[in-house]
Design a protein around this nucleic acid. Structure first.
Ligand SMILES: [Zn+2]
Ligand SMILES: [Zn+2]
Length: 654
DNA sequence: GCTAACGTTCGC
DNA sequence: GCGAACGTTAGC
């Protein structure tokens, strides 16, 4: 790679709602060796542009996913015709260069001293910078750089931006100045806390923190779902609906948390599966009560914590590298295709042949901002990237609303195959819509209505938000263009048949959540087929049930039965977990505490994916039991059963 | 509006 | 000087 790889770290292009700024490192001046200063379009923003004449080309940002790709695919149109077209590989095309350059008449922008700049790091209105508000994973990659699924199905990890083990909290000047997105996600935990305060319910029984209860190796789930009616009938309670606005969505920014960190192209150690980690600064806003003292992320694994489970975990768990992957961040493509405008990357069968072979979407938050057909039909599959933007007023909400094109089942399937070596039953996929419809029809009217209400709550808010914000956007894609956007792979696909399906926290004893979907409508409906168990977050002293309608919103509901819960909890708490199950139901397993962390993933369809990670010791499984079907998901059933048998807290019904 | 082509810029 | 690829525009 050449000069292009010595990509930009500075200046940063920061914009607020109303202003755009160019950020340079303190001490930098316009003639510093860090290079020229660019404005939001990457144009020189210093005296070189005084007079409104752009003199310099933009350069690749070096931080986006495509910029992390170091090799040409040699398959795409531009690669094939490189000599003539002289364009960069479609998989390497910087996200920020995909927007149409502004005309030369552009006026220069003010260069603001770093110390005076707002911390809000949002994209310029006319450039598809990832926004700080586009978040899917609460646990993004540690290095904050997007990764790309390479043709060989490996993840092309971008250079590590800062040393592993970087102490949390303010460290360097740079670190403190370039805070990660301040708006990361709805403060689910904060909501819990709030709710706790106003509606205190006692915790689940048992010593949640003493680890006396059986530990189950980390659980991961991919579907927090429940039929609403079922759930509601369980116990009346206040419901906190957490609409998932732009905050919880695919967020490239979460993968580039530090526009401002000197993170580009630095050497990185060769680490194993640097996927399940997150930068300290980007962890979800867990209240201290939720984050156990021993949850230092850097204790968790060599790369900053948050492994699904320890790398040397129990053997009965699938010994798959996938276990140490993060949940795939599913791009949210359609709703706000940020790119441009000149449709430089719009659908062009010549440039992007063979639509059915969409290459692997990036497992790390981006996927090509290219029409699926842009990708080469065979061979390497790069996951290039896109930056979702939510200024578009294109389809809001899930395909159920009839506003979004469905994700491509074909592509999803292929992606599954490519990424995980397993593929959902294609028939299932093909018929998923029908099944979804059936499922929906089977649902009670109340269920449907409630689910729709939940979605509508979000949709309304989101429409408002988007409509208010879209006006100041520059040249976003036309409606026509937007409909050219690549489909969104349904999140469930990425989880289907994944190792973590073995432990679907919320669906134990129920069918695994490995329901494949070729569109989010199916995901949504499918979600409603599931039933949630209760999770207990001990420090919050609440029982909370997290439910998603599978599309646009997540509801966190808290057990309102204070007295009942109190009694139960008190009983269990006093007696310890060892006494509370046998008397209740012969089929119950005692409260099970989870070793490691619990990953919760919910496909929100067009809105992206929400991923939560909870400390395992804060999550209990109640009335969970492992049936043969579920056990079959283990790669080593015998070992798993042995584990259960050995655990006095677990009851094994042979 | 869209793309192919290519002049040009840029970093090395 | 060279490779890479950005930006422009003619042509459709
Ligand atoms: Zn290529
Ligand atoms: Zn880039």
């Amino acid at each position: 790679m050449s000069a292009e790889d010595a990509s930009l770290q500075f200046p940063l292009h920061v914009s607020t709602e109303d202003e755009e700024f160019v950020i340079e490192k303190d001490g930098d001046d316009v003639t510093s060796p860090h290079g020229p200063q660019f404005d939001d379009q990457g144009f020189l923003s210093n005296e070189d542009q005084i007079g409104g004449v752009r003199l310099k080309r933009r350069r690749r940002c070096g931080q986006c996913g495509p910029c992390q790709v170091k090799e040409n695919c040699n398959k795409c149109h531009y690669c094939v015709r490189k000599d003539v077209l002289k364009q960069t590989c479609v998989y390497r095309k910087c996200v920020y260069l995909r927007s149409k350059p502004k005309p030369y008449s552009r006026q220069p922008k003010e260069v603001i001293p770093l110390s005076q700049r707002p911390l809000v790091n949002s994209p310029p209105t006319d450039v598809p910078r990832p926004t700080s508000q586009q978040v899917t994973s609460l646990f993004p990659d540690n290095n904050g750089l997007a990764k790309t699924l390479m043709p060989n199905n490996t993840v092309s990890s971008p250079p590590l931006p800062f040393p592993f083990g970087l102490p949390s909290g303010p460290t360097t000047q740079t670190e403190s100045k370039f805070k990660p997105p301040t708006s990361v996600a709805p403060d689910l935990f904060g909501s819990m806390c709030e709710h706790k305060g106003s509606n205190p319910t006692l915790s689940l029984s048992g010593p949640m923190n003493n680890h006396q209860s059986p530990l189950i190796p980390s659980l991961t789930n991919n579907s927090l779902t429940s039929p609403i009616s079922d759930f509601s009938s369980t116990f009346p309670r206040p419901s906190i609906h957490v609409p998932l606005p732009h905050s919880i969505r695919e967020s490239p920014l979460m993968h580039y948390p530090g526009y401002g960190r000197a993170m580009v192209n630095e050497a990185r150690p060769d680490i194993q599966s640097p996927c399940m980690y997150s930068p300290p600064s980007l962890r979800p806003p867990l209240p201290s009560s939720v984050s156990p003292m021993n949850m230092s992320p850097f204790d968790r694994n060599p790369v900053g914590g948050y492994l699904d489970r320890p790398p040397n975990g129990p053997t009965y768990l699938p010994n798959s590298p996938d276990l140490y992957r993060p949940f795939t961040s599913i791009p949210s493509a359609s709703p706000g295709y940020p790119y441009s405008t000149q449709s430089r990357f719009s659908h062009n069968a010549a440039v992007y042949p063979s639509a059915p072979s969409l290459p692997g979407y990036s497992g790390l938050g981006m996927h090509p901002s290219l029409h699926p057909s842009a990708m080469p039909s065979s061979g390497p599959h790069y996951g290039a990237f896109q930056t979702p933007s939510f200024t578009s007023n294109q389809s809001i909400g899930c395909p159920k609303n009839g506003q979004c094109p469905p994700a491509s089942q074909t592509l999803d399937t292929q992606l599954m195959q490519e990424r995980y070596g397993s593929t959902p039953n294609s028939k299932d996929n093909v018929s998923s819509k029908d099944k979804a419809k059936e499922s929906k029809n089977d649902s009670t009217t109340d269920e449907v209505e409630l689910a729709e209400q939940a979605r509508n709550v979000f949709n309304l808010a989101e429409r408002r938000r988007r409509s208010s914000s879209s006006s100041d956007c520059f040249d976003y894609s036309s409606r026509k263009d937007r409909y050219k956007l690549p489909p969104i792979p349904a999140a469930t696909l990425f989880c289907a048949n994944m190792p973590w399906d073995m432990f679907n926290v919320y669906n134990w004893s129920r069918r695994p959540a490995s329901v494949l979907s070729d569109d989010t409508s199916h995901a949504s409906v499918t979600s409603s087929d599931f039933e949630c168990d209760i999770i207990g977050i001990d420090d919050l002293q609440i029982n909370a049930m997290i439910r998603s309608d599978g599309c646009n919103s997540i509801a966190i509901e808290f057990d309102d039965r204070a007295s009942e819960t109190s009694g139960m909890s008190t009983k269990s708490g006093n007696t310890g977990s060892s006494q509370n199950s046998e008397n209740e139901c012969s089929t119950l397993v005692k409260k099970v505490y989870i070793q490691g962390s619990v990953h919760l993933k919910q496909d929100l369809g067009e809105e992206g994916i929400i991923q939560l990670e909870l400390p395992g010791n804060k999550v209990t499984l109640e009335e969970a039991y492992l049936d043969s079907e579920l056990a079959s998901y283990s790669c080593d059933v015998d070992e798993l059963l042995n584990f259960i048998r050995k655990e006095p807290e677990l009851i094994c019904f042979d």
